[in-house]
Every structure is written in C-alpha cells, then in structure tokens.
Design a protein around this nucleic acid. Structure first.
Length: 899
RNA sequence: GGGGAUUUAGCUCAGCUGGCUAGAGCGUACGAUUCACAUUCGUAAGGUCAUAGGUUCAAGCCCUAUAAUCCCCACCA
C-alpha cells in the first residue's frame, strides 16, 4: 500500500525536485544555440519554442512573498506550455543588486569599524564579490522549494562575463551613435551613500517645512532653503506679474554678501505662491537649474558632496548645510532681512534605501539621450507589438515614455559594472579626445596613441545592465539570433514597469531591432490579509518559505494564485493556502481510492467488478475507445483505451472536456485564478462528489485510469509536486508527469451525459427535502416511491446510494407521502401522514417562491419588445421555463390539497 | 496639475462579448458519518452589485455625474 491516508508534502517534494532536475526535464528540447536557417532566413523552430526569463532575485538574499507569486506565475506558464508540447526554456537569474547589496555590505564594513574610503575601487569590488559568494545559494534553494522548473545550467548572473560584454557593446554603440553624453547636471545625490540616483529611484514624501521670506533690497523672495542663498545668481518674477514688472532688469543686493544679482522674468515664478518672487540657485535646485539654462546664468555650488559649505563667506565655510541654515537665519534676522516665516507642507526627495534627504548636486555624469530610444519604443508599442496584461498598462507606459527625461547611468558605488570610459590625463595632448571608450576596465590607466587615460571610477546603474536581460539570458547575438528571442512573455511586478520593462523595450529594440517579448504580464503587490502593505515595521510580513514548510509547495502556489488578477494589489492570507492544501489532499485521496479499485480488480476474478453491477441492463459499449493519440509517438503511450458504460461516465467525460477548454482559454489570457477555480470545482465537486460516488457502484477501471490521468495533468502546472507524487505512486503510470502530454479531449455520449444532470437534480432535490423535514437522520428513515419514471427505475442503486434512503419502490397505486418538487418526475418520499402535515408550511413557501419566479418570466413574455428583439433561443428558453414552472406549481398545489 | 485603478456575501475575490434564479474559497448555522479523505460528506442562511441619472426588450457589465479608497508621474521657491 503506497498511499498513506493523507498527503505529506515534506516526504516527497525534495526527492521529486531532484529527480526532475537530474532527468533533464527542465531543459529545452529544441537546441538553444542557433542552427542553419532556411534560405529565407526564418527560423522554423520559433513556433516550437517557449521562453520566459526569471526576474533575477538578489543573489545573496532570501525570497519574499513577491518572489513566491512570481515563481508561481512563471512556473505555471512554463509547465503548462511544456505539457502542451513546447520546448520550454525558463531561464533563472541572480542579481548582483548593485545598490542594495552595496548598502548591506557597507553596513557590515562599518560594523567592523572600517569605511569604504580605506580601500580603492578594485579592492572594494573584490571584497563584495567574496561577500556575495559567501551568502549566495540560499535563494536558489528556495526557488527549488517553490518548484521552479527552470534550466539551472543556464542561470545568468548579472555580473557574468557575457552580460558585461553585451552591456559594453551596447554602450559603445550608443557612444558612437551620440546617444551617450557626459554632462554637468543636477543629480539626486545621497550624502550618506555618496552616490547619485536616477529620477525613478527617488522617493518623494510630503513633509512639513518652513517658507521664509527674505528681503533682497526692494524685493522679498520666498525660500525653504535660506542656506543656499550664497549660490543665488538671480531673482525670478513672472513676466505677467504687475507687482514686479518695473523691477525686471534691476540689480539687487544679495544679503550677507557684497554680491549683486539681477531680477529676471521667467514663467517659473508663480505669482500665487509665496511672495511671487523666487531666488534662483542653479547649482542646488532642479527648477532653478533649468531657469539658469534658459537665461544663461552661472552655477555656484555652495554645498559640497560631503554636505559642507563651500564658496561662501569665511564665517560659514565648512559648516554642514544644516548648521549653516541656522546661522544664516540668525544673521538675516539680526540684520533685518528676514521678513516672514510660514509653515508649509512640501514634498521632499529621499534616498529610497536610507531615507536621507537627497541633495540636488551639480555633478558630471554619464547620461543617455533617451529621445530616440523612447520614440522608437512608443512606435512599436502603438503598433501593438506587445500585449499587456492588464491591458491598460500599455497606455500608461506610452504616457511615461512620452515624458521621459535623459537617463543618468552613473553610480558612485564600487559594486557594479565599471563604466568603460577613460579620461585623458595629459592636458597637453590637445588633439586627442577628452574621453575614450575602452573595454579594459580591469586597468586603472591605459595608453592610447601615446596619451595616458585614467579609468572613470563610476559604475553603471543596474537598470542599464538589466535592461539587456532578455538578450543576455537567451544568448542572442547579431550573428546568431536564437529562436527563443523575443521571449514569449515577460512576467514581473507592476511596480517596475517604468524602471525595468520600459528600459528592456528601449534597449531591446536598440540592440536587436525587435521588441524583447511578445507579451507582458504584470503582477501587483501581495498585501496582508487586511489589504495593508507588508513591512517589517508593521510586523505583518509573511515568509513564503514558512508556508511551504507548513503546508507544502503546491498549497502555497495554489493559495497565492487564488483570487489574484493581473496588475492588482491584493490581499493574501493563510486561509487560501489551507484551501490549496485541502485540494492536494483531496486529490491524493481520490488517487488512493482509484488505486484501491485497480488493485482489487487485478487481484479479483476477471472483470466482475470493473463491469459493475448493471441494473439498467444497458451496457452500450464493449469496445475500448481510443483517444486519438498517435500510438507511435511515445513508448508508454499506447493511449489508455477506455469506454463509457453509463451516464455518470459520459457526464464526467463531458465535464472534463469543458474543464480542459476553460483552462486552455484561461492560460491564453493569463487568468490563473480562474483556471485554478475551474480545476478545484471540477476535481472536487464533480469528479469526487458525483463521479467517484457513482463508481463505487459501477466500476470502470479503464475510465478511472484515464480520467485520473486527465485531472492530474491538468492540475500539474499549478500543483506540480502532489501530481508527480501521485503519478509515481500509481501502479500503471510510467515516466514523469512533468513531461507528459496535455490530455486530448474525451469521447462521450452527450445525451447520456445530459441525462445525468437530471439525475443530479433529482438527488439534490431529495436531499433538500429530507433536510427540511423535522427530526434528524431523515435519510435513513424514509424510502422513496416513484411512478412511471424510467430514469429513476434504471438507476435505483445509484439514487439509493447518493440519497442514502433505505429503499426505493414503485408507487403502485395512488400517490402517497411527500411529493418531491420536480416538474418532470413522479417521486415521493414515503413519509407518514403526520410528517406530511408538518411539511405544509414549507410546501406553501415553496409554491410561493416558484410563483414569484414564474411571474418574473411571464412579465418578460408580456413585453412585446422582448419577444420581438431578443434572440430566438432566449425567448424559447423563457417559454420552456414557464411551462416547467407551471407544471411544478400544479403538482405542488395538488400535493398541498391532499394534505 | 497629469495619468491609472478599485468599490459585488461577515472576510478575500470571480463574474469574459449586456441574456436563465449574481458565483467561489474561507467563515457561520444545522445535520451526517465504520473502511479514499474530519484536511470528510450533505443542507442552509447570508447581496440595495458604492450613490444618482441615462441608454437598452434586457445593465453588476455600456454612458454621464457624484462619493469613498488606493497607486503612479510631475510640481510645490
């Protein structure tokens, strides 16, 4: 006896995963390396291949609940397509996570009493490399525990040589195309981490602040940053502002200094805000920077990168910006320049990692001119070359690209890909360019044409390298395009639509001339059970690994996918995992029952049980049905021959077919939750509760085998472990379910299947009536009487078993007992007079409720427009329903009059 | 300021192209049960589909407005 009485995931999961991995099942069957193409240059293998890449988790981190969702989604897609016969390539990855890892490392360094400034860049890089190597591997184990069927030998690390190579190639191409420029611009600079960020990495938070009013001679300006006044180069007023029109062009005295600055006219000044006059500090404010550009103003930097004051009167030199503000305010007040002070709320830029207020800082950085890249991306997006789930994100993305500003790709952290640019060290070599591209970033200095060049110390923004992800993972190259590029789908979090998806599209198009993926599926945040964001400080973080350990990997996957749709931030609770666990256990026990039947059948004498007891005497088919699979295609798969003997069997075939079609549609449209819902109901409510119950009487072992295989394979994409565990325990299956074929449709008699629906209605109505009778254990007390009803007569055993009534007899004479509320069947519960009387109220209520339904239907038919305009089949259905309800009411009334 | 969403049972969510009595899981109540499964089986209660108008033979779904909640982008001297 292989099947224990309940499914224990821990006993199977690790072994099963190891067996899959060593069997090679995770690897694509069609070669990933290019082969000779046809003369037309088209790769015929494309349609056979299914490719998807994993958004690389942090190499030295642990997986969180979002990764759990990611893997559940991507692996379900992968497994489904594998079963569908595609050569699937699910490519795993690991992220060096430039800034994230750097922050963790620097913290560790500081804990040991060191600072980054004790080491040079190459030393730091090597140290972080070791640090990551030491911590690495956890997340890969966790991906395995989640069942990710990815091709491990193709794991791509974001610092792999081919990645760096490809990134350098793109950068060189951009440099040659003039898309890269070095500019002194204002950048978001974190004084704590000493690095700049791209706009997208900045976190804006609304905070209380103070708006000070300071007199510059005749004009009063409003500012939140008085300490930057030493960097002021002008005062701007709105050209439309009557109050100041006459002052435009005049010079005023800059307080606390002996400098004079000009009053200029610029739209930037909002007459309604503050005093309507604004001081212009191009070196420390993004808007002012632009004003400065428009008016050709100088930039005076007064706060250094370390946060201390420079280029200011001696009194303030070396103070931190904070100290300086205090001192400036005091001096302004003392000297009568401070005219007002207001409390306001304004949004302040913060470092997304440490929360430090970012300082807009003037810095020379590498930028990508994104105009052309964005325009190309927009063109392809508008051409609908990428299908989005949810669909609205396409518009959101286009909207973003239309307003995209140039992209700062320089980071001042050592942990990352070195920017392959070298600066001329010898000023006297005037004919040589100031900057040259060179791949030899392992060298600090190089020589070219006899001139010495020094390596730029900065590294790339990680989004610049990860925007190559589909290209580098599939090993695409100009010479050898692979059939796995573009990816079939890019699945990732909706929160990185701009940071990542947008950039993959721009870079993908730039490098390959093709969109990097055909579809995008974006998942939302996993919220806690109350719909709140998970965070360490709130203490509501759920660790996916805990749930996997407690309920099994399948239960987690089913639970996290349940009730989830694309792009939405949705709640998650342990309850849904429990529901998933229950389904796994149910399936386990279904299989146990079936295996028992098979075992008994092989032991016992020839086919007595499998043919079953026929009390309808109408075995129709003795010939096994062939399900149409190509017999030569696989060794094991002489398709299981099966046949249907009765209407329950026809019915389950019909229901399974419907279920398969629904799943196929759901997977095409990425409706995972609905696919699971369908499976849940088919397996539990239909297969177990109805079909298997009938099979306790009529045993059809070939069909039991066939149908069990069907549901196992259909559920496999979502619950890979339990379905494989069962597959391995069943006596007749061979090989792995992971590499099975998606089931073909079953063949059945549709009329017979429909008859079973009637039987379900009869059984349900009997059950309802029994429940509503006074007393308990009614099912055991009262028999059932029927009159002139072949459906009942042919299925006495079945109805008896399903309703649990002690006996069923023909009526033979006048109606007696309690009529079951069915229009088309003469069925009575053989209850004593007394009980019938007690049922009177319930019967009256039943008549009334059917009457209300009938009224509604009649109302509809009375409307001439409905009869005229509604589709014919609807009108016919309404007519039929009316007839049926009328008949039912008549019969119930007749019953009532008897009481 | 610009953009995107959400609102359906106690809770979390489905409901596709408008069409039968609006569904599921969990929770609740009542009942059952000796051998596939208490991680079980059966039955039931529970809905103003946010609100107000409109279109339509027909609206949870389409249109208009309103309210509440949430997210993103830009800006806030």
């Amino acid at each position: 006896m292989k099947f224990a009485s309940s499914y224990e995931p821990n006993q199977y999961e690790a072994d099963i995963y190891a067996a899959w991995e060593t069997s090679g099942a995770f690897e694509p069957t069609v070669p990933t390396i290019p082969i000779d193409n046809n003369a037309d240059g088209k790769d015929d293998r494309k349609g056979l291949c299914y490719s998807i890449v994993m958004p690389p988790p942090n190499a030295n981190g642990n997986l969180h609940i979002g990764h759990g969702l990611t893997i559940a989604l991507e692996d379900s897609l992968t497994r489904y397509n594998r079963l569908k016969g595609k050569s699937t390539w699910y490519i795993p990855g690991a992220d060096h996570a430039g800034f994230e890892t750097w922050v963790v490392y620097e913290r560790a360094l500081e804990a040991q009493g060191h600072t980054r400034f004790e080491f040079d860049r190459d030393e730091l890089y090597a140290r972080v490399w070791d640090f990551v190597a030491m911590q690495r591997g956890n997340m890969e184990l966790q991906l395995r525990a989640l069942g990710a069927s990815c091709s491990w030998k193709d794991l791509t690390f974001t610092l792999d040589e081919n990645v760096i190579d490809r990134v350098y190639t793109t950068f060189e191409k951009m440099w040659n195309d003039g898309l890269i420029y070095r500019g002194e611009k204002l950048v978001n600079f974190c004084p704590k981490h000493q690095t700049a960020f791209a706009d997208i990495e900045v976190e804006h938070k609304d905070e209380p602040g103070t708006l000070w009013e300071i007199a510059y001679d005749d004009i009063i300006v409003s500012t939140t940053r008085p300490e930057t006044l030493f960097g002021d180069v002008a005062i701007a007023v709105n050209p439309e502002d009557e109050r100041y029109r006459d002052l435009i062009g005049k010079h005023v005295h800059l307080p606390l200094t002996d400098r004079e600055i000009e009053i200029i006219a610029d739209e930037h000044a909002d007459p309604a805000y503050g005093t309507g006059a604004v001081k212009i500090t191009p070196a420390h404010d993004f808007d002012d920077f632009e004003v400065g550009e428009r008016h050709n103003l100088p930039r005076i930097q007064v706060i250094a990168e370390d946060g201390t004051m420079i280029n200011v009167p001696e009194k303030y030199l070396g103070l931190t910006a904070k100290e300086c503000r205090k001192q400036v305010l005091k001096d302004l007040k003392d000297q009568g320049f401070l005219k007002g002070e207001k409390n306001i709320t304004h949004s302040v830029a913060h470092c997304y990692k440490c929360g430090t207020v970012l300082e807009p800082t003037l810095k020379e950085q590498w930028f990508i001119d994104v105009k052309k890249l964005a325009a190309t991306a927009i063109k392809h997006l508008e051409n609908n070359e990428i299908k989005f789930h949810p669909a609205n994100k396409q518009k959101v993305l286009i909207n973003y690209l239309e307003n995209l500003k140039d992209w700062n790709i320089s980071r001042q952290i050592p942990w990352g890909i070195a920017i392959p640019m070298f600066k001329k060290a010898d000023e006297s070599a005037t004919d040589e360019p100031d900057w040259i591209f060179d791949r030899r970033t392992n060298l600090k200095t190089i020589e070219k044409s006899g001139v010495k060049y020094v390596r730029d110390e900065d590294t790339f923004d990680t989004w610049f390298s990860s925007s190559h992800w589909p290209i580098v993972c599939t090993d695409w190259s100009e010479e050898n395009p692979t059939p796995y590029y573009p990816l079939n789908v890019m699945e990732t979090g909706a929160d990185i639509l701009f940071a990542w998806v947008a950039r993959m599209i721009m870079v993908g198009l730039y490098v390959t001339d093709e969109v990097p993926f055909k579809e995008v599926y974006l998942h939302g945040l996993v919220l806690d059970e109350h719909g709140k964001k998970m965070s360490k400080s709130k203490g509501n973080v759920i660790n996916p690994m805990d749930l996997v350990a407690k309920y099994g990997s399948d239960a987690f996957r089913l639970g996290i996918l349940r009730g989830r749709s694309a792009g939405m931030n949705q709640a998650f609770s342990e309850n849904s995992v429990i529901a998933g666990r229950n389904l796994c256990n149910k399936l386990w026990n279904i299989s146990r029952l079936i295996q028992n039947v098979i075992d008994e059948n092989t032991k016992g004498s020839e086919n007595v049980l499998s043919r079953g007891i026929s009390d309808n005497g109408s075995l129709r088919s003795e010939e096994p049905r062939n399900d149409g699979r190509d017999e030569a295609s696989r060794e094991r798969s002489i398709p299981l021959p099966y046949y249907t003997n009765n209407m329950g069997e026809d019915w389950i075939c019909r229901e399974l077919d419907t279920c398969l079609v629904q799943i196929e549609n759901d997977m095409k449209t990425y409706r995972f939750a609905e696919a699971i819902e369908t499976l849940y109901q088919t397996i539990w409510d239909k297969y177990a509760d109805w079909f298997l119950e009938t099979q306790k009487i009529y045993r059809n072992t070939p069909l039991l085998k066939k149908t069990l295989e069907t549901i196992l394979i259909a559920l496999h994409p979502f619950a890979p472990f339990v379905t494989e565990a069962i597959w391995q325990n069943l006596s007749w299956t061979e090989g792995f379910i992971i590499t099975e074929k998606w089931p073909e449709k079953l063949i059945y008699d549709p009329i017979s299947a429909e008859n079973f629906e009637s039987l379900i209605t009869i059984v349900s109505e009997v059950r309802t009536t029994l429940q509503s009778l006074p007393g308990t254990n009614n099912a055991k007390k009262y028999g059932l009487l029927y009159d002139n009803d072949s459906l009942v007569e042919d299925n006495l055993l079945l109805i008896k078993a399903l309703t649990k009534v002690p006996e069923i007899n023909a009526l033979n004479g006048a109606p007696r007992g309690l009529r079951i509320a069915l229009a088309n069947h003469e069925l009575y519960l053989d209850v004593p007079e007394k009980v019938v009387n007690e049922y009177k109220d319930a019967l009256t209520e039943k008549i009334l409720s059917v009457g209300r339904e009938l009224d509604a239907l009649n109302q509809r038919m009375l409307n001439p427009n409905y009869v005229q305009k509604a589709p014919e089949h609807l009108v016919k259905e309404t007519k039929d329903a009316i007839k049926e309800k009328e008949a039912l009411i008549d019969r119930l009334k007749a019953q009532l009059s008897l009481i």
